[in-house]
Design a binder for these strands. Structure first.
Lengths: 200, 200
DNA sequence: ACCTGAACACCGTTCAAGT
DNA sequence: ACCTGAACACCGTTCAAGT
């Protein structure tokens, strides 16, 4: 018998469980998904699942953090100097397009609710958020130095405002399912223009 | 024996149950609150509770709708013509001050999550939202006619943007508990100024 | 008519037993 | 070392029995 079992097994199992969980959460939500659902989807027994995660809340937190990280990863593609307005518009477009899927939209709202009751998750999300805001703030600063925008606010305030509004519009979009994403994008764009005041 | 029992009893019982539920939800959240908790707080048995509400979800929906209605009721106090910026600032101040209570903040996030999975609740909240937006839109229109603001956006777009941002900033405030409400108010105010462009 | 509280079904978690 | 699946505790909901 092997002295050490496959050292990659734990990582594989965790990934397998998380993928199953993501699928179930997306379809039914955090609360309505049972451990049995996840086990069925992952083809694993409850006992095995609890070898890799201590509680259902831990699985939720992992998925929530990942969902949020993905949403914020789009910020990295923001060009730093010119085309800031276009970059932000594109960011909004992809964010809002994602929310047209009802499951994704519901998941977003549930992530916030979960964080509001789970201080550890809230802290993790806040850390991501601070980073995202710093990134946008830096992009705005660069654009100011390049002379392509003339915001009346500090880069920090402008960044905080834009990110808050991005989330706020996303929320309304998620709840008022009938209104379309393109109108939301148009509104966000006009906010960016009025806050950042681009040249010409 | 009375041919008709106290005709106000049902209404009283419902109110009694809802008050108990509100207390529990605020302290522990929708999910962590059990029917037994509510029954204990309301000094009533589970059987009696289910005479007045079909499911726990119905109780949640009632509280969620009420919480949201309260948040939006502040809009009614918005003066219609002059002092629009000050009125909006005051609105933000009271909204954000409420969120400094962690329980209220968590409840707000949970309301959204609940609505995202409950189409009926979503519809009820959306109706409130449409009304709130119409009200703000009308206030902006009145201010435009009075010549006190010169927005570059239509009143509808400006109203939608302001309300979205109000929610978005509130969300971040709820999750990043360390940052203070007054800074959030300041940011919202500068948004209002840049979007509405008041005279002088 | 209204209520109680035991009973039921379901779900998160554990653990003895298997390989 | 890793897994299975029955068992346990807990919670939403029902219902027979009381007044």
């Amino acid at each position: 018998m092997p002295r050490l079992a496959d050292p990659e097994l734990p990582a594989r199992r965790r990934a397998q469980i998380l993928e199953a969980a993501r699928y179930c959460f997306h379809a039914r939500g955090f609360r309505q998904t049972t451990i049995e659902d996840i086990c069925g989807e992952a083809r694993i027994s409850p006992g095995a699942l609890y070898r890799y995660f201590d509680t259902k809340a831990d699985i939720i937190a992992a998925i929530a953090l990942d969902a949020r990280a993905q949403a914020e990863a789009a910020l990295e593609r923001l060009s730093t100097a010119e085309g800031l307005i276009e970059g932000l518009t594109e960011l909004a477009r992809s964010a809002f397009a994602g929310l047209e899927d009802a499951g994704d939209a519901a998941l977003m709202a549930e992530v916030w609710a979960e964080a509001a009751r789970d201080p550890l998750l809230a802290k993790a999300l806040a850390a991501r958020d601070v980073e995202a805001q710093a990134r946008l703030s830096a992009a705005i600063s660069a654009a100011v130095r390049a002379g392509s925008v003339y915001p009346a606010l500090t880069p920090e305030d402008a960044a905080a405002l834009l990110l808050s509004t991005l989330d706020g519009i996303g929320l309304r979009l998620a709840l008022r399912r009938e209104q379309n994403a393109s109108e939301a994008v148009r509104r966000f764009r006009s906010l960016a223009v009025h806050v950042l005041k681009p040249k010409r």
